[in-house]
Amino acid sequence: MWKVTQIAIKGRSHENSGTPCQDKTFSLNNNECFAVSLADGAGSAAHSEIGAQGVTKKVCEVLTEKFDEYFSAETSDKVAEELLAALIEELEKISAVSNCDLKDLASTLLAVAVKNDNFLAVHVGDGVIGMLDGDFLAVLSTPDNGEFSNETTFVTSPDAISHLRLYKGNIDEVSAFMLMSDGTASGFYQRQSQNLMPVMKKIIQAAKILPVEEVEKGLAENFRETLCKITADDCSLVLLLKCADESL
């Protein structure tokens, strides 16, 4: 069985400016498939938190519905095109309702879906997707930044299709997946070595055993006390955890 823990904490920069948290998370259990997602709304986009909310929901719906088809696809090209088209279609609906441009809804996107012994992962932009493979904390997908520090790619970027990364594999010894926004990655991911910090393993161990509410409350408090002191950005984390039925 899988369980999900997710938090999104507003960073100091948005606290100071009175703007909403632009990191959004979502999870869905459908068709015997668990999907989790995270999106970091662009600071320059007027309604990026709405866009982030829209794409996190949509990607989970698409992945749980089409998991088998996508997993058995021979190449990623068609899957990437179809998935991106579904996300853009959803954002166009939102832009019509919200009376804004598509670019006002810009966000990154990270998602993982698991079904039986297989997984699919999707990544556009910065942030990190990690996994606990046996006892090893592995990085599945690294941040995709531009040359300069304040640049990345968004779902709405004209060249998003060439930056959309898709992964598939067998779960085997994998017992947890982690989705991190750029803010969270600034504390838990070493850019130069491309490794995750060991403390993440302890967090996963605790999150597998403790009730979800307790974990989310504890993590939120700890993020505010430490992580939010070293970055002014919003910080979000989604954990998809494989655990024994009784721990649920």
Binding site: S149, R191, M197, K202, I203
Partner: peptide
């Protein structure tokens, strides 16, 4: 305790260098 595992100390976090201008 298991709940202590959720505690994050400053030294547990990576100290990525500040982006330069």
């Amino acid at each position: 305790k298991v709940s202590d595992y959720l505690k994050i100390r400053r030294e547990d976090l990576n100290n990525n260098p500040t982006a330069r201008v």
